[in-house]
Design a protein around this nucleic acid. Structure first.
Lengths: 205, 205, 205, 205
DNA sequence: AATGAATGAGGGTTCATTCAT
DNA sequence: TATGAATGAACCCTCATTCAT
């Protein structure tokens, strides 16, 4: 990943104004701007300026305005998905515990990546549907989990439920991230867990 | 204005290419386009063309590109809100029955106003937040209802729950309206009702 | 010109909403608007509205936007010219007395026709040069007067002097009319008279 | 930046199609067009074309249509004011000599900057009052000069006189610049000097 | 890799003028 | 005469993208 001329003399330092670094700074600048103004009101020139480079430099790293957005969204989703998977697999066999672990992880992620979460889940700032599409990719997984657990004994339609859950998580997390003082983190987790169908007491006694 | 039943004295027809009619056609054209391409990709020229009038005519009826959008959103929300209120007030005292009546009304509205629902609840098409803002206006009402019913005996935070519910309804309705064959209407209603906290069996036997 | 149903009972009154009246009102509305916003920022629709008629009515009375302006300017100049001629011819043979009489008349006219004076002499509001052209038509007359009186004995070029005088009168009158409290009318007259070359004491004794 | 006399080390030429150069060409093009057609009839596209660049390039250098105009007017007035001040301060103590020096400088300036003078003093081409406003800024200085010299012994009101003089200079210079053959430059100077109140022989003997 | 000036298509908006009623 | 909705050309301005250096 790095360093053109690292022999041994320089223990760690390198001309870290390298291409990779510029790319990183463009990503950071873009994330910031997309989170605050949305895709459509953010210009490539703004992004470049925010990264401290000239306008044309942007196009050495990304083929057009949308590629940077795509990159941010895809990387963030991959990261988040990985964290959620991991959180779930460590929670034991109790489905409610898994849900809780995942909600906790979701809010932790949100707290650490506020700008990114705004881009992913915030009300559209002209995102052209990418974030939404990627988001939809995860709905089937939710649906599968529901099917597995709920079986046939409820009136809950798994597809509809998956849509509902995904939307409520996205909304709550985006809302909370805007201002984490709106509610204590644990309260949010508790509520999301409680709202989940798995928390529902068995149909009969 | 209501020519349909005119006596006979009138020569024949009124200027039926009246301003009000053009305005209506612009609204229809705009709704269609906003639903399919979003606010930002829709041009005033498109809207005018869709209404069968010249570009400048748009501005005789709406002061700028956003006024038409505002008009659609505000009128639709007013209409919907009224229908929901009415549905609720006819459902008796059982809170679950109220929820069910409202979900039914919501889906009926969606079926009758597919394009409008896309604009209201669809994934942002560059809506500049108006639909979202208006939507938020309704969250407090949901929250108040929750507070009244849930009391202090649950772990559900009313604010968080309101966000979650509003988001899930919006998403489900937008998703369903895209293609009503995705699920039978009653199935959707049942699911939404079941997911609502009021359907939850009381905490203690 | 008028009256659909005037029998005889009404001695003098007539539906003075006749064509001539509409025309007059358009002229008045235009004068007002040209004076306050200038030719270019005034729209024909504004003029019509100001006259209490529909947009299209304007074109029944004036062939285009400029004809109304032309009318105002030409009529006002004719009126002013006539008044100045008359004032001069009543002032006797003393050239300075003639100048004084004319300056007095000019300021009287200005006071009575503030809006019109703004249009005629005010700083261009996008007047497309008509007022200026018409104004120039009067410079030769001033020049002729100077030639007659000054003869060859001065260093004053009559053409240059005529330009200078015309411009100073126009400017002073427009400036004064904006707010007549800026200087007492007689003071303005005295100054203009004093500045006129005829007030200059003879070259030699 | 000043390439003209570069040694030899430099490969050959700098990007002489530099921003500063383009900016200069836009200013020149704008001055030309404003002088001939006025602010309002000049389009930014015209200006760009006149400068040999694309339409959008205009906005890299000026934020809107008026900024270029402002720039021209302000720079020209600054320049002119400086030259007049300098001319006056070199003319000795005789007030008439000062006036003469300034009138000479004014006409020299006009001859060297015909287009700019048209913009500054020409009959309004829809200038939106900027030139006029800036012009007015100079009237108080004229007024102060008059007050100092004239004292209380005349009937001349300094404010009115200042308006009259400023207007006559502006008009004469604009008129003369349109076609300098209209009068020999010295003749114009002589006339303006003679018309100035300072040239007036003392009130008594 | 980087620069940054330049490009030019395209969108929103205005308004003088027309014309069917 | 009057109405007033409609027209459509034209203008200002933005910004994603290119390219010579």
């Amino acid at each position: 990943m790095n360093v053109t001329a690292s022999e041994s003399a320089e223990p760690a330092r390198a001309p870290e104004r390298s291409a990779a670094d510029t790319r990183r700074r463009l990503l950071a600048s873009g994330t910031q701007l997309f989170a605050s103004k949305g895709l459509q009101k953010t210009t490539t020139v703004d992004i470049a300026r925010g990264a401290g480079v000239a306008a044309g430099t942007y196009y050495l790293h990304f083929k057009d305005k949308h590629e940077l957005f795509r990159e941010i969204v895809l990387a963030a989703f991959d990261d988040l998905r990985e964290r959620l998977r991991h959180a779930g697999s460590h929670a034991g066999a109790d489905p409610v515990a898994v849900v809780r672990a995942r909600m906790q992880e979701l809010l932790a992620f949100a707290e650490e990546n506020r700008a990114v979460v705004s881009v992913l889940f915030g009300r559209d700032h002209g995102a052209e549907g990418l974030a939404e599409e990627v988001f939809d990719l995860n709905v089937p997984a939710i649906e599968a989990g529901l099917r597995r657990r709920l079986g046939a004994q409820t009136t809950l339609d798994p597809v509809v439920t998956a849509q509902a859950l995904a939307a409520s998580w996205a909304r709550v997390v985006a809302w909370w991230v805007e201002d984490p003082d709106r509610a204590p983190r644990e309260r949010v987790v508790d509520t999301l867990v409680e709202l989940h169908p798995f928390s529902r007491r068995p149909e009969h006694g």
